[in-house]
Design a protein around this nucleic acid. Structure first.
Lengths: 169, 169
DNA sequence: CGTCGACGTGAAAACCATGTTCATTTAGCA
DNA sequence: TGCTAAATGAACATGGTTTTCACGTCGACG
């Protein structure tokens, strides 16, 4: 398996998350970081295999769960309840609008919702209020394409290489 | 099994939903209608068994799916992705605030979110915009109880009997 | 620089909600 | 009442996710 590529890149940050830096985790973060759209654990697993890094499916699931706990990824559920992951670019709480056709997502400024939810906490006496907002629709591109094709074009799976900036150590 | 109770009550509405009125569907609606909080298909299945109506788990799932399609129940997903159902009191699109401790829910007027989502459609060029908003927290009661007990008190499973008002026919 | 223990890995199997199949029953119209 | 499409349900299939457990390896400490 292609081991060197990952080994060489990462400067192995000091314990930002309490997670050990392993070849597998580095690979997961590396591929995930180049993924412009939400993907499932299984897709990520396949992508890893394609890119030469053998990472067990179990480990992919486990790593994704840890990354979620550590706040390094955003998680969303598709209609079937399957979890989809996206490397979180910042620390802000984000909401996404996802195209049901092509799967492309765009972050959405949900200030208004955020504020409304905060107010709701006071109003109702509920504490530790959490909210999940899933937005989906059909993007302009797909709407246009739909005229001819029956929809379901695949989203781009990987973006160009980039300097590794993991959260391990 | 207690069959007569259901038979006698329902005036078997004219095909409001295109669904046939069967003993099983009547039982599901009857129990669901007395359920003050969201419950899972499995819980409902157990509840049905308790109340003397034998309804296959398959049928419970199928019926719930149909009721969802017909807009007669609200569906929500818990943290594990499991679907939870609640007989919908009205036809409005509702959002719920659910207590993570006791499971009790309260409908929430989400006008603001609704309006915001509508505006978002225009802004982004997305069509057929759908949104799911899941709100959870810890209600005042549970917060108080938490001081002593470690949480997780069970919600009331069934309310008192009521006049049957199904949506079948 | 070597040791060692805790943490990480992964193949296989378990789990669990949900869907599908198909033979049988039933609702409800003619 | 008879007939047919729809509904039922037991068994089975599915598929995402977690658990198990034997083995590997990271990295702290000497």
């Amino acid at each position: 398996m292609a081991e060197a590529e990952a080994e060489s890149t990462a400067g192995v940050q000091p314990r930002a998350t309490g997670l050990r830096s392993t070849r597998q985790r580095r690979a997961v973060l590396e591929v995930l970081g180049r993924c412009p759209e939400f993907i499932s654990a299984q897709e990520l697993h396949a992508l890893l295999a394609d890119s030469g890094s053998t990472v067990g499916l179990t480990t992919v699931y486990r790593t994704l769960r840890e990354l979620d706990r550590a706040g390094l990824v955003d998680v969303v559920r598709d209609e079937g309840g399957e979890r989809l992951y996206l490397r979180r670019p910042t620390d802000e709480h984000r909401h996404y609008l996802i195209c049901r056709c092509c799967g492309r997502s765009r972050p959405v400024d949900a200030e208004a919702v955020e504020r409304w939810a905060a107010g709701l906490a006071e109003l109702t006496g509920f504490a530790e209020l959490e909210h999940t907002l899933e937005l989906s629709g059909v993007c302009a591109d797909c709407r246009q394409a739909e005229a001819t094709a029956p929809c379901r074009q695949a989203p781009p799976l990987l973006a160009a290489e980039s300097g590794t900036q993991d959260g391990l150590g």
